[in-house]
Design a binder for these strands. Structure first.
Lengths: 193, 193
DNA sequence: TTCATTTATTGAACTTGTTCAATGTTTTGT
DNA sequence: ACAAAACATTGAACAAGTTCAATAAATGAA
């Protein structure tokens, strides 16, 4: 049941059986039904999670009530509000299941325990954080330099699987455009084929 | 001469004198004259750096020849292309001094040495990477949800010091707008006062 | 100081994306 | 299978931001 998690970790770093087992044992399985929230604005994020089934959206609601999706997390992705979790302060984010999902959660206390007792875990999260930072940096550049059409096309190419599972509403919120405009982009693309 | 660096590190993590000295000794001081480059697209980034004097821009040039500034690094800031440095692959970024500057550089080899011989350094960079990730995430949300006017006002409030030292051209490239439009924003704001 | 270069401002025409309201389509829960 | 809700599409009017070209102002190197 924690096979996916183990494989995911081993992609980043080499660990002995003992190390990986004792780390994975700190995670607990949770089911989250579609539309339920793992985190809401104002909550303090008490967990770091790894998705083994289903799909989540991590988003923010701005002053005008518009939702911005920071990222989607499907099977094999990690989810948390790093700011709220590490600094133990109220979150600005929502984490909601878009499908019936299963997620493995580790508490802050247990993660601290792992940092202090399994030295390589520090390295693991240093590497993982670097990787997520690198991809966010790429997305930042893309958002600054590319037009919405191109960002949509890139999204489909990069995440064909997510594209199938998401509504246009969600994709628009990720691309940072209105869903009406996304609809017009789709029409334009369709007419070109 | 490495006092700034030591102070900066101690803000993130507690280290013994011995630990911090042996780490800081791995850095070498470099002078970089205004307009000179520390890194160009295509180069493999061989260093991680800490600015003790001056100001740098870290930017990207897109398909249309437009420059997007990822961030500015003044005194007390770290600079690198994390992707290129950690994965030893050609960079997509430019790092250029905007003023006569001084930067402390550490090589990949020496950083690996530190990771392996000073266990807390792993934690230090895990924490620092988390912090930069958190602020990039905030900027991502702002870029998706705020209008250029507001982003400009926010920038001035958040970095009054940088605002003084940068041309509008550079600020526009950071905000992701044309410098002509920035000029119009400035006029609008000025007329409201 | 001078002249060349870089930076900043402005206006007009244009493109990209938003808003709102109406309508049609698909999903979902029971 | 049905009604309700959520999602998608469309058009028209609008707002935000770009582009281009011209001019002015500031900076920098000799």
């Amino acid at each position: 049941m924690k096979e996916l998690l183990k494989q995911n970790i081993l992609k980043h770093i080499a660990l002995s059986n003992k190390e990986i087992d004792s780390f994975c044992n700190l995670f607990n399985e949770n089911k989250v039904m579609k539309k339920q929230f793992l985190l809401r604005e104002g909550d303090i994020c008490k967990f770091e999670g790894f998705v083994t089934k289903g799909l989540f959206r991590i988003y923010h609601i701005d002053q005008n009530g518009f939702e911005q999706v920071l990222y989607f997390a499907q099977e094999n992705w990690w989810i948390t509000d790093m700011d709220s979790f590490t600094n133990e302060k109220p979150s600005h984010l929502y984490i909601q299941a878009l499908e019936d999902s299963v997620v493995l959660l580790i508490s802050k206390k247990d993660k601290e325990f792992a940092y202090n007792n399994i030295p390589k875990i520090e390295k693991l999260f240093r590497i993982m954080t670097q990787k997520t930072h690198i991809s966010l940096q790429r997305r930042m550049i893309d958002n600054l330099s590319k037009t919405a059409d191109q960002r949509y096309i890139d999204f489909i190419e990069k995440y064909p699987n997510l594209f199938q599972r998401l509504t246009n509403l969600q994709i628009a919120a990720y691309l940072g455009i209105s869903h009406e405009f996304l609809s017009k982009i789709r029409r334009k693309i369709a007419s070109k084929k």
